[in-house]
Simulated scan of single mutants.
Amino acid sequence: MDKLELRGRTTVLEGQDGGSGRGRFSVADISRMAAGLTARETEVFRQLRDGPSTRDLAMRLGITERTVKHHVVNIRTKFGDISRFQLCLLSATWGTAPTDD
């Protein structure tokens, strides 16, 4: 089972396979990874913070479910082949970080 642990502003993810998807991600780490996303991927990543279904995400963004799946796969790959669940946790951590705006 995937596990989330929050330590201050660090998210610790452990995958069930003990391999990929493990690590500690600070808000700065997540921001660096997110910088490599396209504008649309960033929008999808931000929307993942509350764990919506593919259908809900498609409706929110006005795109097809197939397109949502495509974006999620691309984001997961860019973040090191982590699970969708882990991606949602990272999005939630990133989404609650204070901004410098």
Rank of each mutant, 00 (worst) to 15 (best):
T38N: 06
F79N: 06
A92H: 06
K3D: 00
L89F: 13
I30K: 04
K69Q: 14
T77R: 13
T67G: 03
D50Q: 03
S83A: 14
H70Q: 10
T77A: 04
L48Y: 08
L13A: 03
A92F: 12
G80F: 11
Q86Y: 08
G19A: 02
D2M: 06
R7C: 02
R76S: 10
K3S: 12
G80T: 12
D50T: 14
V12S: 07
V27R: 02
L48T: 07
A28Q: 09
V68G: 04
A39G: 13
V73G: 06
I75A: 04
T42I: 01
L57A: 13
S83P: 03
E65I: 05
D81T: 01
F25D: 13
P52K: 08
T96E: 12
G19P: 00
I75W: 07
T64M: 06
I75K: 02
L37K: 02
G19F: 09
E41V: 06
M1C: 00
H71G: 03
D81E: 13
F45V: 13
R49P: 02
M33P: 05
T77Y: 05
R66I: 11
R84I: 09
E14L: 09
I82M: 06
G18C: 07
L61W: 04
T77K: 11
E43K: 09
K3Q: 08
F85D: 04
A92G: 12
G23E: 05
L48H: 08
T54A: 13
E5T: 11
L48A: 00
H71R: 05
L13E: 12
G80P: 01
L89Q: 06
R66S: 13
D50M: 05
I75L: 01
G21C: 07
G18N: 12
Q86S: 15
G51W: 07
